[in-house]
Structures are given as structure tokens and as C-alpha cells.
Simulated assay, not measured.
Amino acid sequence: MKKNKDETKETIHKLIEVARMYFTEKGYAETSLEEIVNQANLTRGALYHHFGNKIGLFQVVLESVQKGIANRIETEAAQSDDVWEQLFLGCRAFVTAAVEPQNRRIFLIDGPSVLGWESWRRMDEQYSMRLLHEQLQSMQDQGFLKPVSINAMTHALSGALNESALWIAQMPDYQQALEETMTVVSHLLDGFKSR
């Protein structure tokens, strides 16, 4: 019985890994299921059994990208004990991870268009926005933030970061655009500090 579970996990992992490679390189629309199953050395039946269809597979791939970005945010934010620097480092980690070649197309371009904006947002709320909300709530509870709505601030800041990531992804000088963005984010965050 354990062998079957291990084989199932291996099959799922292989399909996700190969699909992510194709979705990254070619995009959702240009990727065929035939390419994925051939590269994974599996059958279409295995893919349909585990994911239902191409959209189901893409959704799982996008969720793995979202989890990876959330892990980056947590790792980068944990580099400091200062709550403001944690917030800044988390914001920077989000934008940096979102525009990386292995994430950009899946996360920023195909994710919202394939799944629809509302589904993409719900997934974003589960991962990156949840971390942002928790950090802001903790900061407010400790008296570091002005008395503002944490829900409103979370959505405003998340929207700014998502839009910034889309802008940075189109810029020829990625590093300069990232630094300019983070300067703006720093000034924006300064406005919320309780004095």
C-alpha cells in the first residue's frame, strides 16, 4: 500500500514539475498536455486522474508558485528583528520573487487570465496577503502603526506591490526599477508609523 502512495506522490510531483517548466517557458496557451505527459513519461490518463484537466493542473502549479513566494517572504522577513524592516524585507521579497523568470509568467500573466481575477486573488489572499495582514496586525497590536484599518491597508499595499511587480517585469533594467519601487514603498510605509 505504501508503494502505491509513494508512486502516486511521485507521479503528481513529476507532472507538476514538468508542467511548471512548460508553463514558464511557453505559457499556458502554448503548452499542450501531450508535451507534458510525453516529457514526464506518463499518460494523459494519469494527468486527468490527478488534475482533471489542463486548468486543474495549472491551478496546482500556480499554487506551488504562490507557496514558494510566501516562503520567500517569510524567510526574508525573518532576517531582521525590527518589525518595520521585517515588513520592508517581506515586501521586497514578494516583488523580487514575483518577477523572477520561473514565476513571472505563471504568477503575473497567466494566473489571473487563466483562472480569472477573483480566483487568482483568493489564492493570493491565502498566501502573500495573509502574511502581510498578519504582520500589519501584529505591528498595530504592538503600537507601531497609526490606527488605520488593517484590512484596508493590507489590500492597498498588496495592490501596490502587485502593480509594481507587473511594472518591474516589463522594465529593461529590472534592478533599477526594483530599487525605485522599494524607495517608494519605504516612503509609503513611513507614513503609517506611529510617532
Rank of each mutant, 00 (worst) to 15 (best):
M1Y: 10
K3W: 07
N4K: 13
N4Q: 14
N4R: 14
D6Y: 09
E10R: 15
I12G: 03
I12V: 15
H13P: 03
K14N: 05
V18K: 08
A19I: 04
A19V: 02
R20M: 09
F23Q: 08
F23N: 10
E25H: 06
K26W: 05
E35D: 02
E35A: 11
I36N: 01
V37Q: 12
N38T: 15
A40P: 02
L42K: 07
L42I: 05
A46F: 11
H50E: 14
Q59K: 14
L62H: 09
S64Y: 06
S64A: 06
V65P: 02
G68A: 15
I69D: 00
A70L: 01
A70E: 01
R72P: 00
E76H: 00
Q79E: 11
S80W: 11
S80Q: 04
D81I: 09
D82L: 08
D82I: 12
Q86V: 03
A93T: 05
F94H: 07
V95C: 06
A97I: 02
V99K: 03
R104T: 11
L108G: 07
L108Q: 09
I109H: 03
S113G: 01
V114H: 06
G116H: 04
W117A: 13
S119G: 06
S119A: 13
S119I: 08
R122C: 04
D124T: 02
D124K: 08
Q126C: 05
S128E: 07
M129D: 03
M129P: 00
M129I: 05
L132W: 01
L132Y: 04
S138C: 09
S138E: 13
M139Y: 05
M139I: 14
Q140E: 12
D141P: 09
Q142L: 12
L145P: 02
L145N: 08
L145I: 13
K146V: 03
P147R: 06
I150H: 07
M153W: 00
G159P: 02
A160R: 00
L161N: 00
L166V: 13
W167R: 15
I168S: 02
A169C: 03
Q170K: 09
D173F: 07
A177P: 09
E179V: 06
T183W: 01
T183R: 12
V185F: 06
V185T: 11
G191A: 10
F192E: 02
S194W: 01
